[in-house]
Design a protein around this nucleic acid. Sequence first.
DNA 1: CTCCTTACGTACACTGTGCATGTAAGACTC
DNA 2: GAGTCTTACATGCACAGTGTACGTAAGGAG
Lengths: 192, 192
Amino acid sequence: MPRASAAAAARTAQQVLDAATDLFAARGFAAVSLDDVARAAGVTRGAVYHHYGNKAGLFRAVAARLQARVADSVVEAAEHAGADPRARLGAGSHAFLDAITSGPAVRVLLVDAPAVLGWREWRELDAENSGTHLRDALRAMGVDDDLLGALTAQLSGAMNDAALWIAEHEDGTRTRQQAHAALDRLLAAVAP
Amino acid sequence: MPRASAAAAARTAQQVLDAATDLFAARGFAAVSLDDVARAAGVTRGAVYHHYGNKAGLFRAVAARLQARVADSVVEAAEHAGADPRARLGAGSHAFLDAITSGPAVRVLLVDAPAVLGWREWRELDAENSGTHLRDALRAMGVDDDLLGALTAQLSGAMNDAALWIAEHEDGTRTRQQAHAALDRLLAAVAP
DNA sequence: CTCCTTACGTACACTGTGCATGTAAGACTC
DNA sequence: GAGTCTTACATGCACAGTGTACGTAAGGAG
C-alpha cells in the first residue's frame, strides 16, 4: 500500500536519515540494525534500501550531512573573522571544535566513519568539506607547499582527537577551554 | 580429536593471533570472518572461541600486541636518545611514526580499533602504552599541568593522522620525510 | 484513460556469530 | 600407573541481520 508523491518520498527519506543519525550516534554503526532504523522512522526496511541502497550507503548519507553542517559552521566563523589569514585560521579551527562536539557528529564522523567507509573515502569526504578550508588557511599563512599536505593532515588529526577528548570527558566547559588552549598552542607552531 | 599439551595450546593460540593480525590488517575487521581466521590458522572456529572468547576479544588481543610492539620501539628510541627531555620527545615521536607505519599496525590500530573496541577502550589501550610516554615527555618539557591532557591527546592525534597519511600515499620516502618535517613543526610549538 | 515509473512492502536465501554439546588427550592424585 | 579431572579443541545448531527478488499500488505524463 504505497502512497508516494514526490514530496512524500522526500519526507520519508528525511525521516529515515534523521532516525539513522540518532541511532548511529547513540549506539554506533555495528549495533544498529536496519530494522531498528526502519522502525524508528515508521517504515519498513524496503524503504531504507530503496533510498540508500545498503547499510553503508545510509551511513554515508548520514556522515555527509553531518560533515556538511560542521563545514558550514567553519565557513561562517571564518567569514565573520574578517580578512586576516591568522584570524581566519584561528576562528575556523575553534569553530570546528565547537561544531563537531555539539550534537551527534563525533561518534559518527570520528569513530565509525573511518572503519565503515574506509580511511580513503572518509578522507575524501573530509577533503570536500572542512579539510579544504584548513588547507587553504594554511596556504594563506604562507606554509611551504612541501609541508602543506602533511601539516594539514596532522592539524586535522589534532583537532579530531581534541573533539574526541572533549566528548570523552563530557564534564562542562573546563575541558573545552583546555582543548581550545592546547589547540592555540599548536596553531602557534604554524603562525607565531 | 584434540591433542593438547600446554606448549601446543600456546602455539595454536599464537597461530590464530598471527593469522588474525594478517587478515584484519589486509581486509579490515568487518570483512574477516572467524572461519577465515580459523582456516588460515589451520584450526576450526572452536579453537578461536576457546582462546579468545569472541570476535572482539580476538581483535583486542591483536591490537594489544601491535600496540605493545609500537610502544617498545618508542621506548627504545627514547632510551637511545639520552637524557635531554627535548631529544627524547623528538626521538620517541619519530620512532612512533616509523614503527606504526611499518607493518600491519596502521589499519588495525588507527582505523578499526576505535570502532570495534569503542573510543574509550581504545584510548585506555593507548594510554597503557605509547600514550603514557608522550604524556611523560611533555611533562618533562615543562608543559603546564592544565594543558597536559589536552595537548597529549592532540599531539597523539596529529601523529596518528600523520601515520595514516603516510600509509595512504605509500609512495616511498618522500611523503615520509614530509610527515616527519611537519611533525617537527608541531613539536616546536611545545618545545622551541 | 492508459501506461510507465516510482516508492515502497514482503518473503526468502545466505552469511556469520555465538553457544551448547561432545570428546579425547595431558596433568594430577594416590 | 590407574583413575579422575581439566584443558583444548571440534561439531552442530539456533539466531540475527543483510541483501535481493518480487509484488503492488499510487502518482504523473501523454
